[in-house]
Amino acid sequence: MLTLPDGVPIDSDTLKIALGDSSGEHAYFLHTETGEVVFFSLYDDSEAKDELERRVNESAGYVKIEPVPSRVAYIWMEDFVSDVIFPENEGLATMLYRALKGKGAFGRFKRILCDESDRWLKEWYNWREVQMEQAMQDWITENISEESTLK
Score class of each variant (00 low, 15 high):
Met1Cys: 09
Leu2Val: 12
Thr3Cys: 05
Thr3Phe: 03
Leu4Thr: 13
Gly7Lys: 00
Gly7Glu: 05
Gly7Ala: 04
Ile10Ser: 00
Asp11Lys: 00
Asp11His: 01
Asp13Ser: 10
Leu15Ala: 00
Lys16Glu: 14
Ile17Val: 14
Ile17Gly: 00
Gly20Pro: 00
Asp21Trp: 06
Ser23Lys: 09
Ser23Glu: 10
Ala27Pro: 04
Tyr28Trp: 10
Tyr28Val: 00
His31Glu: 14
Thr32Ser: 12
Glu33His: 07
Glu33Trp: 06
Gly35Cys: 02
Glu36Pro: 03
Glu36His: 03
Val37Trp: 03
Val37Met: 04
Val37Asn: 02
Val38Arg: 13
Val38Leu: 13
Tyr43Phe: 11
Asp44Ala: 04
Asp44Met: 03
Asp45Lys: 01
Asp45Thr: 06
Glu47Met: 02
Glu47Leu: 03
Glu51His: 04
Leu52Thr: 06
Leu52Arg: 08
Leu52Phe: 09
Glu53Gly: 02
Arg55Leu: 12
Val56Lys: 01
Asn57Cys: 09
Asn57Pro: 06
Glu58Leu: 07
Ala60Lys: 14
Ala60Gly: 15
Tyr62Ile: 01
Val63Ile: 13
Val63Asn: 04
Ile65Trp: 01
Glu66Met: 01
Pro67Leu: 01
Pro69Asn: 08
Arg71Tyr: 15
Arg71Glu: 15
Ile75Phe: 12
Ile75Tyr: 12
Trp76Phe: 13
Met77His: 06
Glu78Phe: 06
Asp79Cys: 10
Phe80Cys: 05
Phe80Leu: 07
Val81Thr: 07
Ser82Met: 07
Ser82Glu: 13
Asp83Phe: 11
Val84Phe: 05
Ile85Thr: 07
Phe86Gln: 06
Pro87Leu: 06
Gly91Arg: 12
Gly91Phe: 12
Gly91His: 13
Ala93Trp: 00
Ala93Pro: 01
Leu96Thr: 04
Tyr97Lys: 04
Arg98Met: 08
Ala99Arg: 03
Gly102Leu: 03
Gly104Arg: 02
Phe106Gln: 13
Gly107Glu: 09
Arg108Asn: 10
Lys110Asn: 15
Lys110Ala: 11
Lys110Asp: 12
Arg111Thr: 15
Ile112Arg: 10
Asp115Ser: 10
Asp115Trp: 05
Asp118Thr: 13
Lys122Gly: 08
Glu123Asp: 13
Trp124Met: 07
Tyr125Lys: 15
Glu129Pro: 00
Glu129Gln: 14
Met132Trp: 13
Glu133Tyr: 10
Gln134Thr: 12
Ala135Glu: 15
Gln137Glu: 14
Gln137Trp: 09
Trp139Gly: 01
Ile140Trp: 00
Ile140Asp: 04
Glu142Val: 07
Thr149Asp: 12
Lys151Phe: 05
Lys151Thr: 09
